[in-house]
Design a protein around this nucleic acid. Structure first.
Lengths: 190, 190, 190, 190
DNA sequence: CATGAATGAGGTTTCATTCAT
DNA sequence: TATGAATGAAACCTCATTCAT
């Protein structure tokens, strides 16, 4: 079955995001899937392959979702806010994946750079565009820090129960307030 | 020597922040200090004690620096901005410690809760105060997410070379823009 | 193979009874079995598990042998003597196990109490019964001391070559003399 | 001070008898004495020296007490019973030493043989004498097993609270019943 | 494809002993 | 005599990976 391979990814993701990568053993994964250790090596030739493939997979997925959201040709504001919402909706609907991506990021910076479709790059690009259009209130590097940092924390605080409310609403609010924080008010003409 | 104990903490911190906690072995630490593995156990009874003690130590240190910064009785704005600057200056001057604290946080949420002097608590309290005074533009949970997230990312992007400039200037800019993002403009009367 | 697990128990028992528990290393056991240390941990999750399981196993075995011997409904004397003989025959045929049980007993009193099928309990009960029937010449606690002590020493002295003779004969003689020492002579009417 | 050396022996004995020899570390002993590890090596050149010296010391002590008790020229019965009582009184008054001797015995049979003044030898000799005089009811090897075994167990059961009563009384009773068990009744003419 | 026993390298920890002070 | 840091060997245990079945 093609299924087993996917199951391994699913369970590995859960465990990695809960306990950490090094803290999760091949045995843990095998047990969670309901197979034995050896079987895993039919599908992946090392633990590291699972680790890396998961990151790549979800990076690309989030990247594409965000990319898609940018295609809607409306105002800058709507493009930005839609993208932020897409980002957060992905995080809320794939908490394991999102949490895992952060953990991976922290411990494997070098490997991160090898990944092509990095959500960070899209965020970076969109903010760069706003800057070029002269509608950014603050320096783009700071804007990037504010956006990425806030997104991560909103996700985290929601999963910790600090931020409450429906997913969609949280996403909308966050997009709104980030936009307000970044953009020079010009009477709504952007 | 009283020195060895401190040396162990120093080298462990470096390694933990570079490679991660589990990825750093007692042997790594011993080599960095220039002693043998066994010797470490005269000073700490387990690797975990080192891990925890480091977190506690730097949490308390940052906490106290922030607390101190709050004592200056001036305007709300100055209190807030001074605290943010104190936070970032600490991070910039103790990059290993700050990076380590984030790693620890991600993997050891349960242990984090046992720590008394948590910088997060102070940030939380200050934002709560602003809320009570009615000068917060956004909901306090979101404000907290924005502040903590931005601080972490500004530190990260500076250490990655994305954000450039002198430490003090970065800290000032960040404090300024966070204040602006959080606060209802009222003609400068806060 | 199901075999390996048993082999580990067999070799561990030998080594424990020869050199002591703490004095026997996992490596010793692994070598004796012809595997590597790590392999042991597929079958037992700790050295302590081996240690405890061995005690439990042989305690239960001896207990059941003694219990069985008591089922033969004959005179008190025959029941007692048969049980003593069963006890010694077990010891003579499983010298490692018996020696091990004594070592374990000495060093791990607390764990001993957790074991359900303790031969001691059966000896205790049988002597209690004799006491209730009023045919015991001496106080039951002393009788118990005499019986257990003598059994242990007869085993020991035989294995040291001090006591000679065929197993069966030694067992019979011991049973006889213990009975005589415990029981009020009443013309053979018990 | 000569004192420290003795203190080390005292504390080592306590710990060995409580936890076992291997289970007791030099550090444990040092702490109990109130000195540091290195200091112990001023007085003993190895842990093993402590272990062996303790056994030798208390073996000799018990041996001499028993020897002394034999000097009183009275009847065989009184000699035997006095010796048994001396043995038990020693055990009751030096429970750590007695318990330790048994542990040592179990794990270090080879070293035991090197010791000259072994209480076992005296017991053996006295029983041999009774045999030669033809007043032994049972074979001397069995008599020896019964005597040594019973003594050990009476001590053990008393320390476990199974056998109750005043030390002296227990010793007297034990001596009496062992004599009765060993000796052919001949109308009290021994 | 899957099993699960086994390997082998390496991790954490313990501890008798040494040694500079 | 005593300290206590340090050594070094060895203990227990873990785990990614391999392999015969």
């Amino acid at each position: 079955m093609v299924r087993t391979r996917d199951l391994i990814l699913v369970e590995a993701l859960k465990l990695f995001s809960e306990k950490g990568i090094k803290e999760t053993t091949i045995r843990d994964i095998a047990r969670a899937v309901g197979i034995t250790e050896g079987a895993i090596y039919r599908h992946f030739h090392s633990k590291d392959q699972i680790v890396y493939e998961l990151f790549e997979k979800y990076s690309a997925e989030l990247y594409e979702i965000m990319e898609e959201s940018l295609k809607e040709k409306t105002s800058d504001e709507m493009r930005f806010r839609t993208m932020i919402e897409a980002f957060l909706n992905f995080a809320f609907n794939n908490p394991d994946a999102f949490r895992y991506m952060n953990i991976f990021h922290y411990l494997r910076e070098k490997q991160v750079r090898r990944v092509k479709k990095l959500p960070f790059n899209l965020l970076s690009k969109v903010i760069g565009d706003l800057e070029e259009k002269g509608i950014l209130k603050i320096e783009p590097e700071y804007a990037l820090a504010m956006v990425t940092g806030t997104l991560e924390r909103v996700f985290l605080y929601r999963s910790m129960g600090i931020i409450k409310g429906r997913k969609k609403v949280i996403a909308k609010k966050t997009a709104q307030l980030l936009w307000n924080s970044l953009i020079e008010y010009n009477g709504g003409k952007n």
